[in-house]
C-alpha cells in the first residue's frame, strides 16, 4: 500500500527530524522511501514542508495536489496552506497553537490561528486537533512536539506502522538520555 505523507509547519519545530524517523520506520518494514523538503534560507521562521512517499512504483520525491493520504501540520495556517495537497477525504492532524510571524507583529495584523482551525473544521476532511503546547507542558518539554504529532498520526491508522515501531526507530536516533521523554511523547494520548 503506497502512502503519501506531508509534514508541514514552521522552521525549528522538528519537522525534518520527524520525516527522517517516519522514513526509517517504513524502511524497517522493507518499504521503499523517497522524500523532499525545504532546506536553506527559508528554514528559520519560514514555512517548512516535507513530502514523504512510501511504497513501490514511486518515481519523484514530491507528489502533486490531491495526493496526500495524511497531512501532519505543526501549525494551523501551514495546514491550510498545504491543504490542496490532501486527497479527497484525507486525514489532517493539526497542532492548534499558532506561530505568529514577525511580519504579523510588524503590521499588528490579527493572525491568531483560530480562523484557520474554523476553516479546517468546515472542510470535508478527517481532522484531528492536538493542543501541542498543553501536551508538551504536561510532558515537561517544548522539544517533544514532533513526537507528540507523530504519535497522533500513527494512532489515526493511516501510517503503515505502529507506535512500537516508531519507539524502536526513535531509540536508534536520539541520545539515550532523551529516549524516555520521547517515548512518553509518542505514547501520549489525549
Amino acid at each position: 500500500m503506497n502512502k503519501n505523507i506531508l509534514l508541514c509547519g514552521v522552521g525549528g519545530q522538528g519537522i525534518v527530524l520527524t520525516s527522517k524517523l517516519t522514513a526509517s520506520c517504513a524502511m524497517e518494514k522493507g518499504m521503499s522511501v523517497m522524500s523532499a523538503e525545504t532546506i536553506g534560507m527559508a528554514q528559520k521562521g519560514g514555512s517548512v514542508f516535507s513530502f514523504l512517499r512510501l511504497g513501490e512504483n514511486i518515481y519523484s520525491p514530491m507528489f502533486g495536489k490531491g495526493q496526500a493520504d495524511i497531512i501532519i501540520a505543526f501549525e494551523p495556517a501551514e495546514a491550510v496552506r498545504m491543504l490542496p495537497y490532501l486527497k479527497k477525504g484525507g486525514t489532517v492532524i493539526v497542532n492548534t497553537n499558532p506561530v505568529i510571524p514577525v511580519t504579523s507583529a510588524l503590521k499588528a495584523s490579527g493572525y491568531c490561528g483560530t480562523e484557520m482551525l474554523e476553516y479546517l473544521r468546515k472542510c470535508d476532511i478527517k481532522l484531528m486537533e492536538v493542543d501541542g503546547n498543553k501536551v508538551c507542558r504536561e510532558l515537561g518539554s517544548p522539544k517533544v512536539l514532533n513526537m507528540v504529532m507523530l504519535g497522533e498520526a500513527i494512532r489515526s491508522g493511516v501510517l503503515p506502522f505502529t507506535v512500537d515501531d516508531a519507539v524502536d526507530a526513535m531509540k536508534k536516533t536520539v541520545k539515550p538520555q532523551f529516549a524516555e521523554l520521547n517515548e512518553k511523547a509518542l505514547r501520549n494520548q489525549n
Binding site: 491543504l83 490532501l86 486527497k87 511580519t103
Partner: peptide, 15 residues
C-alpha cells in the same frame, strides 16, 4: 482536484 472553500488570508513567512 478537490474544490476547497475559499481560504482565509494566510500569514506570510519571509525568511
Amino acid at each position: 482536484t478537490a474544490v476547497l472553500p475559499e481560504t482565509p488570508e494566510l500569514p506570510v513567512r519571509p525568511p
